Simulated scan of single mutants.
Amino acid sequence: MKITQVASLYNIEIDSIKIVNGNVSYPIVLINKKYIIKRVASEMSINEVLFNTMRERGVLQNIVLNKYGRMFTYFDSCFWMVYIYHEGELFDHHNSNHMMKSMYFLKRIVNMTPNVGEIKFHDNFYVSEWYVDSKKMFLKTLELINRYYGSIENDYIEKLKMLIGYTSFSSEEFDRLQKTISHGEYQNTNILFSQDSIDIIDWDSLSIRPRIFDISTYLIYLCRKKRGSFKLDNIKIKMLLDYFELTDIEYKNLINMVFVNLVPREDKIEIFSVYSRGKLEWYLKWTVEFMEEVIYTLNKEDL
C-alpha cells in the first residue's frame, strides 16, 4: 500500500488508518490517530523555503520531517507531507476573543516575510496572472469550467462578467502592493483554538502574495455574521481594516482580491469534479453567490 511505504520514509509504523477526505487524487489519511499523511501538488515543493521560514520561526510546529530531514517526500511520482494531527475548537464567529487572536496571528505571519529576492513562488490563486492579463485568466476560467463540468448556463457566465466588471486589475498596481508571506486560505475551518493557544492548519496554499490578499480572505470568511452565511458583519469588517491599517492602494485593491479569492480556480474545480458533478455544481454556484454578496457589501458600505 502506498501510504504504508510513505509512512516508512518518516519512520512511522502503522497501527491504524483512517481516511479523512476520500479524495482519490489527493488523499488525506490519519495514521495512528497522531499523524496526517497527505499527497500535495508537486508545485508546492517550489515553496519549501517559505515552509522552512515558518517552521524556524515557530509557526509551523506540526510538520514532520522525513528521515532525510526534508519536509517534502517524493515517492511514486507524487509529493507527500506529514503533519502531527491537532484537534481544537474551530473559529467561532460569535467569539470576539477568537477574532482578536486570529487577527493578531495573521499579522504575525505577514510580518515574518523573508528576503527572497527574485524567487518565483508557486501561487495556486494566480494573483499576479490576474493582474497581468485578467481577460486571459477569465477566459481560462470559463475553459476550465467547460472542461470539467461541461456547458454552463449563460446566466452564470453573465454574472461572472458582471462581477469582474467591479475589478480594476493592472500590472502596475500589482507591483506597488506590499508582498508578504500568505497562508492563502486563512479561514474558519483552518483555525483551531485550544485553551490559550491558536493553531493554523492546511498550509497547502502558502506563497508570497500581496499583504491585502490574506486580509481579504479574513474579511470574506471570518467577518461573516455566522458560519454558513454569506452575510457580512460591517462592525467586524471595520475592526479588521482598522487593525491592519490598510494603505490607500490596499483599499483600492480590496475588491480585486475578493474576486481572485472566490473565482472558481483550477485546483478546486479538479478536486470537486473528482467527488461528483453535483459537488462541482455546488462549488461553482457557491463561489459566485458568495462573491456577489461580498462585493455588494463592500460597494454599499463606507469602509
Rank of each mutant, 00 (worst) to 15 (best):
Y131K: 15
K238F: 09
D196N: 14
S42I: 14
W282N: 06
E185H: 10
G228Q: 00
Y85V: 09
S194H: 06
F125D: 07
R227F: 12
M44Q: 13
Y243W: 04
K161H: 08
Q61I: 14
L60H: 02
F79S: 09
N97V: 15
F169M: 09
L163K: 06
E129K: 15
M291L: 04
Y74K: 11
K231Y: 14
S45G: 02
G184V: 09
P210N: 00
N111F: 03
I152F: 05
L163T: 09
S102L: 07
S171T: 12
N11H: 07
E293A: 04
G165N: 09
R176P: 01
K135V: 15
N23G: 13
Y243V: 12
V110N: 04
N190S: 03
K268C: 12
Q187Y: 07
I255Y: 00
T73S: 11
I152L: 03
L106F: 03
Y148Q: 05
V260Y: 00
S25A: 12
H93C: 07
M162N: 05
V127A: 10
I3W: 05
F213D: 01
T287K: 12
T167P: 03
D267S: 14
S42V: 15
S216K: 14
Q178H: 05
I215F: 06
K34M: 11
V59R: 04
F105M: 08
I3N: 08
H86V: 14
F125P: 02
L90F: 14
N47T: 12
A41C: 05
V6D: 02
V258H: 00
K231D: 14
W203P: 03
I63T: 03
F138C: 06
I198H: 00
M99F: 13
T113M: 00
E245F: 09
F75P: 01
L65T: 04
Y10L: 08
E281S: 11
L206A: 06
Y283A: 02
S134N: 15
D175Y: 09
L254Y: 01
F105K: 10
Y35N: 03
S276M: 09
Q195P: 01
Y166D: 04
S102W: 08
F169G: 02
S171R: 10
C78S: 13
N95L: 08
N111G: 07
Y218G: 13
F259W: 00
D133C: 15
V132Q: 15
M54W: 01
S205N: 12
R265I: 15
N261K: 06
Y104T: 11
M44K: 13
N111L: 10
R70L: 07
D76Y: 14
G150D: 05
N190I: 04
S168D: 13
C223P: 01
E56L: 12
M44T: 12
M112G: 03
L303F: 13
S151I: 11
L30D: 01
H98Q: 08
I84A: 06
K236A: 00
L60W: 04
P114I: 01
I271V: 14
E129M: 14
V20M: 11
E173M: 11
E301N: 15
N234K: 13
